[in-house]
Structures are given as structure tokens and as C-alpha cells.
């Protein structure tokens, strides 16, 4: 009994510690308060600022577009890389597997710094072309797509591809009709992972981004240093919206998967 009480109170205490800051900020985002303390009346001012200030809307749209572009590239590179190396000779396979591991274990600061040194300092590519930023973030994300596709390839029945070829399909057709559908779940989770990595990235972005461009991460860090109060509290509204979106995605995902496999996940 005592054990049970301890267990549930530990779980609840940790959850409270994790969620209280976000939730308190969410409550205050609907007020006129500029610091956490006395609540000064209900207001949607922060949400209005968030959606009408051009710098903020540009930054949010830019972050989303960047994440989509990077994830698309990462999915193409990571998936083709995984399929190709799965059937390649050993030395190439080992090269790809090990090189793939580097951005995964490396510190993002080092990844960002090294990409910046090569592309911007040595090769002189202009930051404002977005090439260093997209290349740097893709170098972080593609390895995770590779890692989520690989196990699906290992599970796949190889005979189906051979059968498709025997039945007259071209290799390209067999690839799109047979291989891709079987590894689709790996590709999707790799894509989702890329999106979250790109959205969360600060370090690669800060070393490679054009001077006038900001993602949520770099913007928030700069905003905490500058003291524009209405921007600061508008970011509380952004945090609340992201929190609600995350809850919605998790809830939808839960209902979809529990319906699909009878609540085994």
C-alpha cells in the first residue's frame, strides 16, 4: 500500500514538475501580465501580436518551410542511401553506416561549426543562398531517416522484388511498387523525426543561417536577450499553441494506432 502511494506520488510529482512551467506560461499568455506573478486580467493581446507582427509570422513560416524542405531532402537521401547500401558490397556499406553515425553521435555545435567552416569560410558560399543552412540541417536529419529505414529493409521479404522482376517489372517499377510500400512506415517515422530535429535545432542554424533569417530557436534566444516585452509575451502564446498542437498530434496518433492494432501500443 505504502509502496503504491509512493509510486503514484513520484509519478505525479515528476509530471507536475515537467508540465507546470509550460502550463503556467500558457495561463499567463492569456493575460496582460509581463512577468509571472499577479494576474492582470484576461487578454488575447499576445495572440494578436503573434499573428500580426510580421517579424514573428515570417519567422514561424520560415521555420516550418525550412523543416519541410530539409525533411524532404533527408527522406530522399536517407531512403535511397539505405536501400542502395543494403544491397551494396561490404566496403561501401560499412563506409555509409559509419559516416551515417557521425552526425548522430556528434555534438550539434560541432556539426554546425564544421559545416560553416567548410561551406562558408573555405568554399565561400554566401549564407544568404540558404545552401549552408539546408545542407547543415540535412546532414543532421538524413542519418536518422537512414536509421529508421534500415530495420524495415532487413524485415522485408527479398523474394517479392525478384518475383516482380521475373514477372516483367522494370527495376524502377519494382522499387516503387514493391520496396517502397514495405518500408513506408520507416520512411514516415524518419520524416517525422527530421521535422522535429529541424524544428528544435539551434546550433546548426545559428552557424549557417542567413543574417536576416531566424527560426523559432534562434529568434527565441535573441528575444530573451533583447527586452521587447510585447514580443517576449507573444512568444508565450507561441509556446502555448505549439503545446496544444503537440497534444493534438499525440492524441490523434494514439486513437489511430489503438484502433489499428487493438491497443497493443
Amino acid at each position: 500500500m505504502i509502496k503504491k502511494i509512493f509510486s503514484s506520488s513520484w509519478i505525479i510529482a515528476v509530471l507536475l514538475a515537467m508540465y507546470l512551467p509550460i502550463m503556467i506560461l500558457a495561463v499567463y499568455s492569456f493575460t496582460k501580465s509581463t512577468t509571472i506573478g499577479a494576474i492582470r486580467g484576461f487578454s488575447l493581446e499576445n495572440y494578436k501580436t503573434l499573428f500580426t507582427t510580421e517579424a514573428l509570422t515570417d519567422m514561424i513560416i520560415g521555420t516550418i518551410l525550412l523543416a519541410l524542405l530539409v525533411s524532404l531532402l533527408a527522406v530522399i537521401l536517407g531512403t535511397t542511401g539505405a536501400i542502395g547500401s543494403f544491397y551494396s558490397k561490404k566496403s561501401l556499406k560499412i563506409f555509409i553506416r559509419n559516416a551515417n553515425q557521425i552526425p548522430v553521435v556528434n555534438a550539434d555545435v560541432v556539426t554546425g561549426f564544421s559545416v560553416c567552416i567548410l561551406l562558408i569560410i573555405v568554399l565561400g558560399i554566401d549564407k544568404s543562398t540558404y545552401i549552408p543552412l539546408v545542407a547543415g540541417q540535412t546532414a543532421l536529419c538524413a542519418p536518422f531517416v537512414y536509421l529508421s529505414v534500415m530495420p524495415k529493409l532487413a524485415q522485408m521479404d527479398n523474394n517479392l522484388y525478384e518475383a516482380a522482376l521475373d514477372l516483367g517489372a522494370t527495376p524502377a517499377k519494382a522499387l516503387f511498387k514493391i520496396v517502397i510500400p514495405q518500408i513506408m512506415s520507416g520512411i514516415i517515422s524518419g520524416f517525422m523525426l527530421s521535422i522535429t530535429l529541424s524544428l528544435d535545432d539551434y546550433f546548426i542554424t545559428t552557424y549557417t543561417k542567413p543574417a536576416t533569417f531566424d527560426t523559432i530557436s534562434t529568434y527565441v534566444v535573441n528575444a530573451t536577450k533583447g527586452a521587447q516585452t510585447n514580443i517576449k509575451t507573444a512568444l508565450w502564446a507561441l509556446s502555448t499553441i505549439i503545446f496544444l498542437i503537440v497534444i493534438a498530434i499525440v492524441a490523434v496518433n494514439y486513437f489511430v494506432t489503438s484502433r489499428k492494432d487493438g491497443d497493443s501500443r
Binding site: 530522399i76 537521401l77 536517407g78 535511397t80 542511401g81 539505405a82 536501400i83 542502395g84 547500401s85 543494403f86 544491397y87 551494396s88 558490397k89 561501401l92 563506409f95 555509409i96 559516416a99 551515417n100 557521425i102 552526425p103 556539426t111 564544421s114 559545416v115 567552416i117 567548410l118 561551406l119 545542407a135 547543415g136 540535412t138 546532414a139 538524413a142 537512414y146 527495376p171 522499387l175 520496396v179
Partner: peptide, 19 residues
């Protein structure tokens, strides 16, 4: 199918190893 890994191998070489 093997040739599919060429773009990724080149990408890794340029944007992971070279830096």
C-alpha cells in the same frame, strides 16, 4: 538498386566527412 546509394554516399562525403 545498388546505385541508389551513390547520392547519399556523395552527400556524406561532402557534408559530413569533408567538414
Amino acid at each position: 538498386r545498388k546505385q541508389l546509394c551513390i547520392p547519399y554516399a556523395v552527400f556524406l562525403l561532402f557534408f559530413v566527412i569533408a567538414p
